[in-house]
Design a protein around this nucleic acid. Sequence first.
DNA 1: CCGTAATTTCTGAATTAACAGAAATAGGCA
DNA 2: TGCCTATTTCTGTTAATTCAGAAATTACGG
Lengths: 173, 173
Amino acid sequence: MLSDVTRDFILHWGEMGTRWGVNRSVAQIHALLFLAEAPLPADAIVESLGLARSNVSNSLKELQSWQLVQVRHVMGDRREHFVAVTDIAEVFRLIVEGRKQREIDPTLQALRRFASAAEAGREPHVQTRIAEVLAFVGMLDQWYATMTGARGTGPIDYLRMAQEIHRLLHRRP
Amino acid sequence: MLSDVTRDFILHWGEMGTRWGVNRSVAQIHALLFLAEAPLPADAIVESLGLARSNVSNSLKELQSWQLVQVRHVMGDRREHFVAVTDIAEVFRLIVEGRKQREIDPTLQALRRFASAAEAGREPHVQTRIAEVLAFVGMLDQWYATMTGARGTGPIDYLRMAQEIHRLLHRRP
DNA sequence: CCGTAATTTCTGAATTAACAGAAATAGGCA
DNA sequence: TGCCTATTTCTGTTAATTCAGAAATTACGG
């Protein structure tokens, strides 16, 4: 049985998921595992959220492909148990990484094709605009690589650092 | 009649839109206006993309609410013409700003409620996790405010700066 | 090697979102 | 005021997604 807070958190998370192109079940299961104290078998998820077994199974596979959820084995129990990454900064990183791989990278590819085609074409405006988009997305990509590549620093450290630097640069003379 | 590049760009943009929770028509219209050389009346959009007039009307309203598209009036023409923001960095900023207002801010509110409720509750794990999420989202929010609040600097300058600082800090001794 | 429990895959139903067309409204001009 | 054009709102349909249940597969224990 879920507590009120847990239930509300899961519902909100699910709702947010749908807005960001993630299906509700996946987001809810993720929220549940994120708050769970111990690894949960699929059955427990089915009971807690009232979803079909198959749905839970597919959603868990999806979450594993994002590396947000891992399988654990419990001694004397044949079932698989699932845990979510609980470090919120790491969760964030994994989500950004996943979207990058699935969407930004292909978009970069596509933009490069479009840019070539536009150069060959007869539309200076289109050529310029696409070149600018390409440059911008490329820069975001670089920036992301930098941010996550920093040895020993997670996104939180990075954000703190950026803030601090900004304060130094912009403090009143 | 659209050129091949333009058409492909619009299709790709539309596809990306759906992945990020934006409806296809809205994203396509945005792409079309983004590449357009001059302000376009709704009819022209209908013809170019083969959408229903009503759909175009609603989508334009949506885009205006994001400030991504503005209305222009052309002398001697009663119809409204539409232009998109073409500075890609500004487009990026507006999208982030929109999502922040519509989703992050309400989420922050909700998280604060959950955090209070969790404190009152009897689940230390839940309390800790939610507190961490709240802290992290709050930090992102701050960071965003800093990034966009920088006088005279757009996201591009900010990204460049961040990269440069990172290089300085991490260069081999 | 067979039986059982666990899990995944497949298929169809149901829900939701996107969209076109019709009807209604607003805005200007004679 | 009355007409014409542009635009929006409303409503029903279509398409896409989500999801449950059944069937199939896999893994394990005896």
